[in-house]
Simulated scan of single mutants.
Amino acid sequence: MKSFLLLTIEYDGYDFCGWAKQNKQKTIQGELEAAIFVVLKTKDFKTLGASKTDSEVHAEDQKVYLELPFKPQLISLKNSVNKALPISIKIKDIKEISPDFKVRHCKEKIYNYIFYKKEPGIFQNRYGVYINNFNFQKFWEALKIFEGEHNFLNFAKISRSNLGKIKTIRTINQISFKETENEFICEFFAKGFIRYQIRMIVGAAIAYAQELITIEQIKAVLLLEEPKLKYIAPGKGLILKKIFY
């Protein structure tokens, strides 16, 4: 009898080429499936992630659909797979779901982009970005342009074969800001994001804050009146914080 499970996993994505499994590349999905194979001794299972995070991007609340050909003991499965996983990936929770559950049909996702106020130490460097002489007020001014519904074609990485197949008209519900003693944290709320979307938005806002481009250029690129900008923020500053169903 088949079982349908929902995993909640967290990972440090810095050493990986993103979530999605790729040939000859170290990925989160690839490591997860390898660990499941070690435990189950079979490849007769299926995984599907809720969010295709990019290279170096982290997650605290990635959701993964797992289909198995039998009914496992959930706690034992979680503990055994965690032992087989690298230290940078961990299953936080596992539960049964209905066969018709769609892991990618979520209500909202929250991503954070983290900036350090001062140059970080070696143990923090992989989880945020530090930029010298950074005008955060100008950065914030640029970010707010992207709230609401827009065609994000110029702020996404889409292969030629997928042009027209991926919906580029998306809505960012909110972009908010939090400040801690050591960090500036930008929060992005939306039903879904396209590949590189947040990183290209943040990259453009950084470029404006550094006076490399104008606010008018950003608006023109967003309106598809000018070609894509060359700026992409590092993946290590981005983290998938929460997925809601």
Rank of each mutant, 00 (worst) to 15 (best):
K95E: 14
T53Y: 03
K138G: 00
S98L: 12
R199G: 03
K230I: 11
Y11W: 06
D54N: 08
L7P: 08
A190Q: 04
Y231P: 04
V39Q: 04
K102Q: 14
S76W: 12
R199K: 09
K117L: 10
P227S: 05
K109E: 04
L40Q: 03
I169R: 13
I185N: 04
I91Q: 05
L66E: 07
D12S: 10
E67W: 03
A20P: 09
F152D: 09
F136P: 02
D54V: 02
L229T: 07
L32V: 08
F155P: 03
Y116N: 03
C186Q: 07
I110Y: 12
K2W: 06
R199F: 09
Y127C: 04
R195K: 13
N79Q: 13
L5M: 07
K43C: 07
F70T: 10
A34V: 02
N151V: 04
K102V: 10
L68G: 07
I122H: 05
G237T: 02
Q25E: 14
Y231E: 05
F134A: 01
K102L: 11
D12F: 08
I94L: 07
F155K: 05
L48P: 02
L153K: 14
E211H: 12
T171A: 08
V57M: 03
A156R: 02
K21D: 11
K52E: 09
A35T: 01
I215P: 01
G148P: 00
D15N: 15
E147G: 08
I114T: 15
Y65I: 03
I206D: 01
I185C: 04
F70Q: 07
Q217P: 00
Q217S: 13
F155Q: 05
R160W: 08
A50Y: 06
F189A: 13
T42R: 05
K90C: 14
F45E: 00
K219Q: 14
F155V: 00
N82H: 09
Y111L: 03
S159A: 12
L163W: 11
G18V: 10
S76M: 12
N135V: 00
Y130A: 01
Q62A: 06
Y14P: 01
